[in-house]
Amino acid sequence: MTKKIRIEEIIVVEGKDDTKRVQQVVDADTIETNGSALSQETLTKIEHAEKIRGVIVFTDPDFSGEKIRKQITEVVPTAKHAFISRKKGEPKRQGNSLGVEHASDETILEALRNVSTPTTDVFQSEIEIEDLIYFGLIAGNNAKKRRESLGEKLNIGYTNGKQLKKRLKMFHIEKEAFKKAMKEILEDENNE
């Protein structure tokens, strides 16, 4: 058996199933939020963990997961974030909810290798709303699919159209990196 990769930071997940799944893949400690209504006690624990070892927020790619990310980012703006796409978090059995616990070993490893850290530094993004419209990320038949692909390519997770510009700025995505990712996405679409 190969030795598991050790993750120094404490990984913040939503529940026991996520902890179990992550620990099957890597050697890591976790903090479970136990739902999207984070208690002050849990937020304090996450804040302390960030000071001691750092934290990686690794929540489900859904509304609740995003809500948790926002709450943690308000208290711990330096927390790192790991993302999986909705597609890679789909359950094998119908009726189960979307989540980290359904991701493959490789998906979990890839997400933890490609963590992103939002910054509070002043960053003047050159990506304008017009760019998002031009690349069909806000309106149109393929907008949602393109935002999902962009979030995966840039390791910033999925966002709705309203939040995309803010997320690109938060993770300091340069216009050239944005354009390169969009070029690849459009090429992939043309090859389908």
Rank of each mutant, 00 (worst) to 15 (best):
K169H: 11
F58Y: 12
K70F: 01
D29H: 15
K144A: 03
D18N: 12
G95Q: 09
T59L: 13
I11D: 07
N190L: 08
R86D: 09
K166S: 03
S97V: 06
K88W: 07
V122S: 01
R86K: 11
Q40D: 08
V115E: 09
S36L: 05
R21E: 11
T2Y: 05
E126Y: 00
I127T: 02
E101W: 14
L38K: 00
E130C: 04
L38A: 00
P91C: 02
I10R: 15
D29M: 15
M1R: 13
G136Q: 10
G35H: 09
Q124E: 15
E126I: 00
V26N: 05
V22F: 12
E50H: 06
G151V: 02
K145A: 13
G15M: 10
F63L: 14
T42N: 07
P118K: 02
L98F: 04
E8Y: 14
V115T: 15
G161Q: 06
I56V: 09
A143R: 13
N114V: 01
E192R: 12
E189C: 03
T19L: 14
R147Q: 10
K92S: 06
K145F: 09
N34A: 12
G99P: 08
V115N: 08
I68S: 04
E66D: 15
N114M: 00
F58L: 08
T159S: 14
E126V: 00
N155M: 05
G157H: 06
T59C: 14
Q24F: 01
K183Q: 14
V115H: 10
D62S: 12
D121F: 05
K45Y: 00
P61S: 06
A143E: 15
M1G: 12
A139V: 06
E14F: 02
G157V: 04
N114P: 01
T159F: 06
T44F: 01
K92H: 05
E176K: 03
A139R: 08
E66W: 03
E126P: 00
G95M: 08
L109W: 03
A139Y: 05
H172Y: 02
S97M: 11
